[in-house]
Design a binder for these strands. Sequence first.
DNA 1: TTGTACGCGTTATCAT
DNA 2: ATGATAACGCGTACAA
Lengths: 335, 335
Amino acid sequence: MKDFVSAQEVAEKAGVSRSAVSRAFTPGASVSAKTRRRVMDAAEALGYHVNHLARGLMTNESGIVCLIVSELGTPFRSSLIRAITQQLQNSGKIAMLINTDRSDGSVDRALRQAIHYRADASIILSGLPDKSITQLCLRNGQRLVLINRDDDQPGPLRINIDDREAASRILTAFMRAGCQQLAFANSEVGTPSLMARERGFVAAAAALGIEVTVERHGSTGYEAGKVVAQRLLTRTKRPDAIFCANDLLACGVMDAARHQFKISVPDQLCIAGFDDIEQASWSSYELTTFAQPVETVAREAVAFLASPALQEDAGEVRSLKLHAELVWRGSIRGG
Amino acid sequence: MKDFVSAQEVAEKAGVSRSAVSRAFTPGASVSAKTRRRVMDAAEALGYHVNHLARGLMTNESGIVCLIVSELGTPFRSSLIRAITQQLQNSGKIAMLINTDRSDGSVDRALRQAIHYRADASIILSGLPDKSITQLCLRNGQRLVLINRDDDQPGPLRINIDDREAASRILTAFMRAGCQQLAFANSEVGTPSLMARERGFVAAAAALGIEVTVERHGSTGYEAGKVVAQRLLTRTKRPDAIFCANDLLACGVMDAARHQFKISVPDQLCIAGFDDIEQASWSSYELTTFAQPVETVAREAVAFLASPALQEDAGEVRSLKLHAELVWRGSIRGG
DNA sequence: TTGTACGCGTTATCAT
DNA sequence: ATGATAACGCGTACAA
């Protein structure tokens, strides 16, 4: 099996030195047009491609950014990954994808991989790394971005959605629709953002002297939504408004309500979700929900990676709180 | 900003030679337990991690596998990516993710990136690379896997689903349900697998002397399904059976039929899809569809990468044709 | 078993 | 503008 072509071979074929080849491929280096031309021709003929691994060895910049994520098959996650990889490519970086599960140390192992491959940065979409690992990454000059994670360690950039504010806004919408029995559908996962939505909703209701029935089950998916709906809709005081921690839960809740309990949405029951996944706009759901500013999240994350390293910024706490836009559809009365 | 820890530093701290450190991290190397212990302790204390980039420089194995894919936010694609990344990680490899679009040369650029990073292999889920690029990859010892692509170049492993056979199976199901007016819903994308389903369906029907109405529109998504349905269901001879090129189209078709045309599924109209995405099982759809053996695809792809390089295998044509399982739900009468 | 010396492909530095 | 040489961090043949 033939090896990759090296700059050495190109140099020989072009009749120049290795350094000339290197310069020809370095933007803004001082090479004569003639030399550059001869090098490029030879490179093309031989099928030469700069070895980024070796380059990274010298420059200490691999161009690699690690995406650490669990449940990557989920609509919201995959759309976020799409946006981020796209932005990364536009910035000349490349994404490494590492799948994590809920097991202990899964994220830590992923970050170790990031270090192994000398990733310039890691973007964590799921789970939370151990403090020691975070420090290890930062100490090695690796930038860190935490998306929708709740962590108070200094160093990483944290990008969050203002979940509490959104929760209080949806409460207002429910009240305006004349809802009386409020409920919140959640999973047992307990992710910070999911919990913030729950707490924000409960708190906002409490401020109005209203109690909220909270039900949690399983992971944050469609099936869990069905189970939660089953529990909520068989209660003696049946809810007429359910705020769901995310759209998948909401779809499950809505389907259970309609097909299993023959409850009309939004006439008898108002439902709201979170994320604005594609399915939320499908005719069968027409789900009123909050759109996370996916593109903005991706842009900010990548911009942070590209920004010049402020010296000794390890002490600074960078945090971004983004606004979720309420997308009004048909699952809440009025509007 | 501090640099990464090198084997040199570990060696000094442990009071051994640098090669001893290297050996301590090389499985099956000859190191005394005592030395290994001292090295490991020092490494742990310093936070040392082997530099895979430099290692790849020596061994000519980066451990990197490129995943080249478009429309990564789509349910089926993302589930496939999930399965593959999982399998790769289990094999000690790591995935690089490259997003492509439909523009010319997008896949070629992605493969060039794969070469830049000296990926051991590339798995192509979307588009089709130029023959010259394919040859370049193979010549450089990079393994290639084409999933659901139609390509007759020798060298790469091709994994396909038997679309034609599936299409003829679903025709049988339609006939058994007593359907008379057959239609096929497709996009204008013209991907080999999509076209194989269309042609297979049309051909199987023709063999029975039945004509199929084919309608194509836009990209292979939900909205396109709605448009296609609109066209099909306003025809004078309205179809009572629609086979859709994939589940997203099918969901769009079904929603349009029910909500827009007040047509009952499956009583007045039978619908089938392809892929068995999660949404197909949701109560609002209960879509009868074909499940692609995602796990098997991923396993076979990764197994091929891990298999020892047969000498001069460039001439051999490796091809896998997998069976799609018919998942029977409620969108076709009978069953 | 352990250490020395070299090479992997690249960029950076320093002459010229 | 160009070429020679060092250095990056690692694996390994070879010698001890």
